[in-house]
Design a protein around this nucleic acid. Structure first.
Length: 434
RNA sequence: GGAGAGGUGGCAGAGUGGUCGAUUGCACCUGACUUGAAAUCAGGCGAGCCGCAAGGCUCCGGGGGUUCGAAUCCCUCCCUCUCCGCCA
């Protein structure tokens, strides 16, 4: 159930106390990101809200006391009747003050929603993706240069294996059919990713593909990216753009046992993205789709351990590419290119030998307490008050671009693609060609 | 989709207009007793916000209303259960 909080409990994304007591820290952090926000306006709204709250609480306190006295009075007595008359105006005033508090809280909350998470100290400065830092590379890209290399959409049998035209007829652009061996290969990849995640300690969940507005808000898709999600309007549900949304919301408004941390979960789901306005010239074939498959890794961890957990999460994602023998590089995303809710983010990019391009197949991020605050996910320390957990997630991995890299990197002169050894257990043979 | 019954603290479950943020049981924590444990006894035990503090305020599925006063009455939405209908 969506709990948008009553009086006195307005969930915000950034810790309001952090903002109040360390404005400069937040100001510097936000300045490193690409988002613009008027922190002074947020602070002013916070002041206004607290002032209104104090005034309301004083009036309410008096009203409560008077009501307690009345409870002891005989109902019909003259004293009682006089008191009722007296309290009428006081009651009206309390109502008015309460309304003012609600307005002030709504204004403050709206302002606070615009404040992004602050980037971690280890995040490099920069304005655009050109400033992202390559922190490691794996595999031999040069070895993939060959005369027969070509983009996957130019492989003669590709149009039969991944049928975009039939997809257009049945649904629209970006909803292809995978046919025969290609469908098998998709299934093999899903199996492989899930098995690997399970072996790395992630508990598998099979999640809802439609979520309500409260869930989409908690993980940050709403209100920011409303236009990027498909919306089932009759029931007001959103098609998930990533398993991150349902999987992270599993624990929404819950307090976890500290002994259970870190909680690690994985889930395979199709993902649906409208990708409005982002269709460019080099978006062809499997590079960008409206519906695609992905296995997502999600962690809920103690705040003190979240940045170490980010490193191991990234390692879990990297291992998949290594086992598939696909060359890749790891980017540490710069402050200016990092997401709104993110504190630190690594992207994994696989080398597609035919297109001779790097394709993003995973994004591994630490959201610190940003999502947890919005989603109300806490843990109870040994002896103490509940604290927000830190949440992390990463793709492990997104399918279509991995598929593209497999096709392009393993294509022989004979037009046959050799399927990575790691997939044979589920794929059943060692080549694909239709 | 229709009819009916419900939604209260970690769980169970009282409470139908005022001293109820809420009886009680279980679970849990502390202490006593015990060699230790169990049993028993005593005490404690929801969350959030404002405040230097004292203290105050809010929360009984969500939202709105009636009232001096709402867990309790009204409206609305969501959800759960039972029966009927439909259906992979």
């Amino acid at each position: 159930m969506p709990s948008d909080g009553g009086l006195g409990q307005s969930p915000s994304m950034l810790d309001p106390k952090l903002l109040r007591e360390n404005v400069d820290l937040v100001r510097q952090g936000v300045a490193r990101k690409k988002f613009q926000v008027d922190l002074d306006a947020v602070l002013a709204a916070d002041d206004a809200r607290r002032a209104a709250l104090a005034e309301f609480e004083t009036a309410r306190s008096a009203q409560n006391a008077a009501n307690k006295e009345m409870a002891a009075l005989p109902k019909g007595s003259a004293e009682f009747v006089a008191k009722v008359a007296e309290m009428k105006s006081a009651s009206a005033r309390v109502k008015e003050l309460e309304k003012r508090v609600q307005d002030a809280e709504a204004a403050w909350h709206a302002a606070a929603l615009a404040v992004p998470n602050v980037p971690h100290d280890s995040v490099p400065p920069g304005r655009t993706e050109a400033d992202n830092r390559v922190v490691s590379e794996w595999g031999d890209v040069a070895a993939l240069v060959s005369a027969s290399a070509r983009p996957h959409w130019d492989i003669p049998w590709f149009a039969r294996a991944v049928d975009f035209e039939r997809g257009v007829k049945v649904t629209g652009a970006g909803f292809p059919f995978y046919v025969g061996d290609m469908a098998r290969l998709v299934r093999a990849l899903v199996q492989f990713f899930l098995e690997e995640a399970g072996a790395a300690g992630y508990q598998e969940v099979h999640a809802p593909l439609l979520v309500n507005a409260a869930s989409a808000t908690a993980t940050g898709q709403l209100p920011d990216k409303e236009g990027q999600m498909y919306h089932a309007q009759t029931d007001d549900f959103y098609l998930i753009p990533t398993a991150e949304v349902p999987v992270t919301n599993f624990f929404r408004d819950e307090i976890l046992d500290e002994s259970a941390l870190p909680v690690k979960r994985c889930g395979y789901t199709p993902c649906f993205r409208r990708e409005a306005g982002s269709w460019g010239a080099h978006v062809r074939g499997l590079n960008r789709l409206h519906q695609f498959d992905k296995v997502e890794l999600v962690k809920w961890v103690r705040p003190s351990e979240s940045f170490d957990e980010l490193e191991s999460l990234r390692g879990d994602a990297e291992r998949l590419l290594q086992k598939l023998n696909l060359p890749y590089r790891v980017l540490l995303i710069c402050a200016g290119d990092i997401g709104f809710a993110h504190s630190k983010q690594y992207d994994l990019e696989v080398w597609a030998g035919g297109q001779k391009r790097w394709l993003e197949v995973s994004s591994c991020s630490n959201f610190t307490d940003f999502q947890a605050r919005r989603a109300g996910i806490r843990f109870r320390p040994k002896d103490g008050k509940p604290e927000h957990v830190h949440t992390l997630n990463g793709s492990g991995l997104g399918l279509p671009r991995v598929l593209a890299a497999i096709l392009e990197n393993n294509l022989g002169p004979d037009g046959v693609v050799r399927v990575p050894e790691a997939l044979r257990r589920w794929y059943g043979k060692d080549t694909i060609a239709l």
